[in-house]
Design a protein around this nucleic acid. Structure first.
Length: 278
DNA sequence: CGTGTCACCTGACAGC
DNA sequence: TGCTGTCAGGTGACAC
């Protein structure tokens, strides 16, 4: 489900709702969500009695700082968090519950069961591939045109869309925002990275920063990024230019938005504003 | 190295 | 009312 803006929205909500709370116990009803440690009982035991001190984010990962550990949570397609009271009815697809000493509980729901949780030594992420492998964080100041050009020129081949989806290339972009970023940049999703001009790299860097920043400010796209029991919704879905708009006129030139498959993912673009290169 | 395909799951939806 | 196939905001394993 969520890409960087949605995960950041969830992070902010969690920060407000659970920082300072102490975990009394943990319930796990779907073992496959928990990856490290191997033993679910150990996972529960490690967290028991600890207080959540911080909620951070790296790429699409949520990082809870708890005592000597970091609880790493990835929502994958449909993971959601909600804060409830202990007496509230437990909804379908609830797989993990953190019971707090104040009578509230943080519940993790995940219809498709793809999400993961790992307990690692605090701020030592070296044991989790996918986390330590992450590319630059696009909303940090270090993500400059030079930084992106460096990433781009390292690659000897590959379609730009596949590259932007690669979390080791840039962290946090997913299928929605890659399509949006390429539209804003005027770059065809199948353009080969080696074809990109310096000017296009500049546009790409600016589009990544602008689109993500705008979306974070709107609380992310659509949806299901519930953090409280009531489901505060983002507003970015109303501002998507191409994603989900196949068959409709391009907001810039009026050409019909096309939908194809690139890098195995549904891909939306304007054939006029994003011409094929070479 | 790169790419495509499948797998992991459930649910929504289109078409018959 | 079914059934079947397809698709979904992600990622990792695998074969080529």
């Amino acid at each position: 489900m969520p890409e960087l803006p949605e995960v950041e929205t969830v992070r902010r909500g969690l920060e407000a709702l659970v920082v300072g709370k102490t975990i009394e116990s943990v319930t796990v009803t779907l073992g496959r969500i928990i990856r490290k440690p191997d033993d679910i009982e150990e996972f529960k035991l490690l967290l028991q009695g600890l207080t959540i001190e911080e909620v951070k984010r790296r790429g699409k990962y949520l990082l809870f700082s708890v005592g000597p550990y970091t609880l790493v949570s990835h929502l994958r397609m449909e993971g959601r968090y909600g804060l409830y009271n202990a007496e509230d009815e437990v909804e379908k697809h609830t797989h993990v519950i953190f019971h707090f000493t104040d009578g509230t509980e943080l519940r993790y729901k995940d219809v498709r069961q793809f999400g993961t949780m790992d307990v690692l030594p605090r701020d030592d992420h070296s044991s989790l591939p996918g986390l330590y492998d992450l590319g630059p964080e696009p909303l940090e100041e270090s993500f400059t045109v030079d930084a992106l050009r460096h990433q781009v020129r390292k690659r000897r081949s590959g379609k730009i869309k596949a590259l932007l989806l690669d979390q080791t290339f840039v962290a946090g972009l997913g299928n929605i925002y890659v399509d949006e970023v390429l539209f804003v940049s005027g770059i065809h999703p199948e353009a080969n990275v080696t074809q990109l001009t310096d000017e296009q790299v500049v546009k790409l860097q600016r589009a990544i920063v602008d689109v993500l920043t705008h979306s974070v400010n709107l609380g992310g796209s659509s949806i299901k990024s519930y953090v409280n029991g009531y489901g505060s919704e983002g507003q970015m879905q109303h501002e998507l230019r191409v994603y989900g708009h196949e068959g409709e006129p391009c907001p810039v030139c009026g050409t019909e938005i096309a939908k194809t498959r690139v890098a195995g993912r549904g891909t939306h673009f304007c054939p006029t504003c994003q011409p094929e290169l070479g």
